[in-house]
């Protein structure tokens, strides 16, 4: 299997890597670019822990080939805070105890940010359905939903 050279943009930075043709974008991010904030919980698109944005679309990076990143814009959890300034979602997840073990947190934050960009004022039900593909086993989701809504309210006010 001959490796493929890929030129892409990750969190705003021009990035190049080589990968095997069957290598997922998640493996590329974690193993080749050392961006281990995206997690592998299932490898089959059922848990959402590997959520990233590709060209403005929320996707599971385990269901994207690394080779498909050619010319694309990738955004991961590592790009969410601007230096020391946390995104309101990140701050509200800490303040509202919306994480326990934290393994699902990067994926949920990336997904929630995508939601609020599309729908700044979602209902609880809309948040719950949007995040249905992000499994969390610790929190029972209650504090996650509340933290997303608190962040949404702050962002609407800002």
């Amino acid at each position: 299997m001959k490796n493929i050279h890929v030129s892409t943009t990750v969190n705003g930075d021009p990035t190049e890597f080589i990968c095997a043709p069957d290598e997922s974008l998640l493996d590329v991010l974690r193993d080749r670019l050392r961006l281990t904030g995206s997690k592998e919980g299932c490898g089959s698109g059922d848990c959402g822990a590997c959520s990233v944005m590709v060209d403005g679309r929320l996707v599971c990076s385990c269901l994207v080939l690394g080779a498909e990143a050619e010319g694309a814009k990738i955004e991961t959890i590592e790009g969410m805070a601007k230096g020391d300034d946390l995104h309101p979602l990140q701050q509200h997840f800490i303040d509202g105890a919306a994480l326990q073990c934290g393994i699902c947190t990067p994926g949920i934050l990336v997904a929630a940010k995508a939601l609020l960009e599309k729908n700044p004022n979602p209902t609880d039900t809309e948040v719950r359905y949007w995040l249905a593909g992000n499994l969390c086993r610790c929190t029972g989701y209650d504090k996650i939903i509340k933290a997303v809504q608190a962040a949404a309210a702050e962002m609407r006010g800002a």
Partner: peptide, 17 residues
Amino acid sequence: PRPDGIDKVTGRAMYGA
């Protein structure tokens, strides 16, 4: 706030893999 909060919301926290 929990002491490991920022690491866990920024993707810096180091898990098993």
